[in-house]
Structure formats: structure tokens, C-alpha cells
């Protein structure tokens, strides 16, 4: 039964991925203002536009272009970045552009996850264990404030304090790829810190809520009435039932990092995948936008799937789809 439920989720995830690819393709490809007119710019004549469109394959019907694009994508060919190509120069393969950027983003996200997850679990559990006390109230208020302000405020405030007034770290995070050791750490520090603050406050709030939710259930009351020590109640009775929701929270918030990454990479000029995508949006480099969006959405769907899996494993009732 468990395997069937998991297979069911995998199938749903795959279907969602296909629908997402259609949406991404539709969102960009059926629209006016294609790359041909951008490449030619002011030199465009109707004839040269038509000629360039047919060499780029832009004159095919939309559904054919979708299957061509999907087939290329599945075989690992992400296509050619069109805006990079002058008249007849061929452009840059997108996979070459993406690989180093993806590595940078994975470094950033990995560093954030390594710091944010233990930190916010600790704080969330502490707040839940001492619910109603001053510690709990200060954690709750701080995180409420932090989740309701835009990421760029957190980032600018950190730059102002750490880089401008204290002068400890550089205000931008340009990485050329040759940095090692301290230089790399210094460049990564501020973007990581910003994302840790943003992601942690979400995880703390949801961890606290899910533990409190478990703690308010009747069997915990029963355990209290039996006179069990508080330590034993939290560790033996509450925690096993809160693990699923908490893993769920962590996976969901790592997925949520996707949007945080876009803002943070832009603000610090960090050469990651999200910055590449924002630049591609500004130059209307549609193939590049599509490729980046597919990577981000796949990562997001995988993380949401993990969250789902965690809740299935921890709650047997979810194994039987109604």
C-alpha cells in the first residue's frame, strides 16, 4: 500500500511536470516579439525576419515547436541562446551557459540549507517548548516581522549594517570562479546570511505551529494526566508525530528559497542561475528563460514531492487515497 501511494505521488509529480512544461512553453512561445525581431533590431525587414524565423524554426506551428523543444530537453540539449547569436554566428549553447551558474546557485542554496535547517529547528522547538513565555513571544514577533517584509529589505539592511557601517564584508558577491578559501567565503557570506534569515523565519514559525498542534492533541493531555515528565512527553510522545510535518515544512521552505534566490542573486550581483534568468528576461532570450524556468520548477516539484513523501511516511492514514 505504501509503495502504491508513493508511485501515485510520483505519477502525479510527472504529470504536473508535463503540464508545467506546456505552461512555460505557452507562456513564452505563442507570443509576439520573438527573438528574430530582437536579433535583427532596426535592420529588420519583413523578408529578413521571415528568413531568420525559418532558420531558427520559429515559423513552425506551436505544437510542433513544443514537441521539438521537449524532445531536445529530454535528450539533454537545452538549445542555443538566441540573443547571444549575431547574424549567423550561431550563439552559445545554453547548457554551457547554465552549468557554471547552476553550480554557484547550488553552493549558495546548500550553504543556506546547512545553516538554516538546524538553526530554525532549534529555535522553533525552543519556542514551542516554552510557549507563552517571553522567549517564545520574542521569537514569534521577530519571525512575524521578518516573513512580512520583502527579501530585499532584509538584504539592504544587512548590507547597510555589515558592509557599510561595520565594513566587514564586501557589498557585492561577484564570484569569477577562481576564488578559493576565505575570498569565496567572504563573497558568499552576505547572500547566505540574507537567505538564512528569510528561510529560517518561515521554518521557525511552521515548526512551532506543528509541534504546538501535536502538543494540544488529546493523547498528549492523557500523557500529562498520567504524570509523565515533560521531557519524556516531548521526546517520546510529541516528537515522533511532529517529525513528518517538520520535514514537510523544511522541504517546502527549501522550495520557497527558489524565489528568494532570484531577489538575492540580483541584489548582490551573485552570478547564479537566477541572475542568469533575470538577465535573460530583460533581453527576452526566450530559450534561456524556458530552460532556467524548467530547472527551477523541476527542483521545486522534487522538493514538494519530498515534503509529500515525508507526510505519507509519518501519517499512515494518507497511504490510502480517498
Amino acid at each position: 500500500m505504501l509503495i502504491r501511494a508513493v508511485l501515485h505521488r510520483i505519477a502525479t509529480g510527472l504529470v504536473t511536470l508535463v503540464v508545467v512544461s506546456v505552461l512555460i512553453f505557452l507562456g513564452t512561445s505563442v507570443l509576439p516579439g520573438d527573438v528574430a525581431s530582437i536579433i535583427l533590431g532596426q535592420m529588420a525587414t519583413p523578408e529578413s525576419l521571415a528568413a531568420l524565423r525559418s532558420t531558427l524554426g520559429l515559423d513552425q506551428p506551436a505544437y510542433l515547436r513544443y514537441f521539438m523543444w521537449l524532445g531536445d530537453l529530454l535528450s539533454g540539449d537545452l538549445g542555443i541562446s538566441k540573443a547571444g547569436s549575431g547574424a549567423g554566428t550561431g550563439g552559445t549553447p545554453i547548457s554551457e551557459m547554465i552549468a557554471p551558474r547552476l553550480a554557484n546557485t547550488v553552493h549558495l542554496a546548500g550553504a543556506v540549507a546547512l545553516i538554516a535547517v538546524p538553526l530554525s529547528l532549534g529555535l522553533g522547538l525552543a519556542a514551542a517548548a516554552r510557549a507563552g513565555t517571553r522567549l517564545d513571544r520574542s521569537i514569534t514577533l521577530t519571525t512575524l516581522g521578518l516573513v512580512s517584509v520583502p527579501e530585499f529589505l532584509v538584504a539592504t539592511a544587512l548590507v547597510l549594517v555589515v558592509a557599510v557601517y561595520l565594513g566587514w564584508l564586501p557589498a557585492t558577491a561577484y564570484v569569477s570562479g577562481t576564488e578559493t578559501g576565505t575570498a569565496l567565503l567572504k563573497a558568499l557570506a552576505l547572500p547566505t546570511l540574507t537567505l538564512v534569515v528569510v528561510a529560517s523565519s518561515q521554518i521557525i514559525r511552521m515548526t512551532r505551529a506543528s509541534v504546538l498542534n501535536v502538543m494540544s492533541s488529546p493523547y498528549i493531555e492523557m500523557a500529562v494526566l498520567k504524570g509523565l515528565p515533560r521531557r519524556r512527553i516531548v521526546l517520546r510522545h510529541a516528537l515522533p508525530n511532529a517529525v513528518g510535518p517538520i520535514v514537510n515544512v523544511i522541504a517546502l521552505n527549501l522550495a520557497y528559497l527558489v524565489s528568494g534566490v532570484v531577489i538575492v542573486e540580483t541584489i548582490f550581483a551573485y552570478p547564479g542561475l537566477a541572475k542568469l534568468m533575470v538577465d535573460a528576461v530583460q533581453t527576452r532570450d526566450l530559450p534561456l528563460v524556458q530552460a532556467c524556468a524548467m530547472i527551477f520548477c523541476s527542483a521545486y516539484i522534487v522538493l514538494v514531492f519530498i515534503a509529500d513523501l515525508a507526510s505519507i511516511l509519518s501519517n499512515p492514514r494518507l497511504r490510502y487515497p480517498r
Binding site: L23, V258, S259, V262, I263, A293, F296, C297, Y300, V304
Partner: peptide
Amino acid sequence: LSMPTIML
């Protein structure tokens, strides 16, 4: 829903 809003 399965796409990050900012990506969409």
C-alpha cells in the same frame, strides 16, 4: 501552484 510564483 507547482510553479514558484516568481518564475511564472
